[in-house]
Amino acid sequence: MAARDYGQYCGVTRALELVGERWALLIVRDLLVGPRRYGELAAGLPRIPSNILAARLKELQAAGIIRRVPHSRVIVYELTPYGSELEPLVLALGAWGFKAMGEPREDQVITPDSMTMALRTAFRPEVAAGLPPTSYAAEFGPATLLIRVDGCILAVDRGNGPADLAFSAGPAVRRLISGELAPGRAITTGAVKVLAGSGDLLERFATTFHLAA
């Protein structure tokens, strides 16, 4: 049911035929965060035309990557076990693409799901395992997330809540995660604003979430 046929008998070729069409992997990325209604997927991908979203969902369903299921009296899309196997690939692509991100353009947006996956990509469980449990309430532009780290376990939820450190950060969070911007410097320059809690915990955040640029 692939939209494109490369005419080669190869696993990489087949993977591209299944998820290589434009927007397909971004749909998978958002569904890795959790099941989504059609409208939620559209809101998380604000530039996708509705006919393309509908087509990609049909293609991914036909390939056995996603499925439609009833949930609380509505229909949601979720990954199948086969589709969930794409998580390591998506995280690896995120880490690889991070090296070439640069500064954002004015027309580029951050969504809660994209930032959630970015945090999962940057998460260092082997480091977090040696640190005390810590919660962060973070505002990344329009994306407000509650981040809980307990040993090697990471949980990221939309919204706000009690946290050890509450902070807001714009695009400079990329430089913080990459190590280009020291946590103390990020605070003194206003790149990161501490809203509640001890600013010293930003050092722990930057240690827990790190990707080399």
Rank of each mutant, 00 (worst) to 15 (best):
T111M: 04
T111V: 09
M115K: 02
M115E: 13
T116V: 11
T116I: 08
M117P: 02
L119V: 10
L119C: 08
L119R: 06
L119M: 12
R120S: 01
R120P: 04
R120I: 12
T121W: 06
T121L: 01
R124N: 10
P125D: 12
E126W: 13
V127F: 11
A128W: 04
A129E: 14
G130R: 09
G130I: 10
L131T: 11
T134R: 03
S135M: 10
S135T: 15
S135L: 14
S135K: 02
Y136M: 00
Y136I: 01
A138G: 09
E139S: 14
E139W: 13
F140P: 06
G141N: 06
A143I: 06
A143Q: 07
A143G: 07
A143R: 08
T144Q: 05
T144D: 01
L145V: 11
L146R: 12
L146A: 03
L146G: 02
I147M: 02
R148N: 11
R148F: 06
V149S: 08
D150N: 11
G151K: 07
G151R: 04
C152P: 00
C152N: 14
C152A: 15
I153P: 00
A155Q: 10
V156G: 09
D157V: 08
D157H: 15
R158C: 02
R158A: 15
R158M: 10
G159W: 10
N160L: 14
N160C: 11
G161H: 02
P162N: 13
P162K: 12
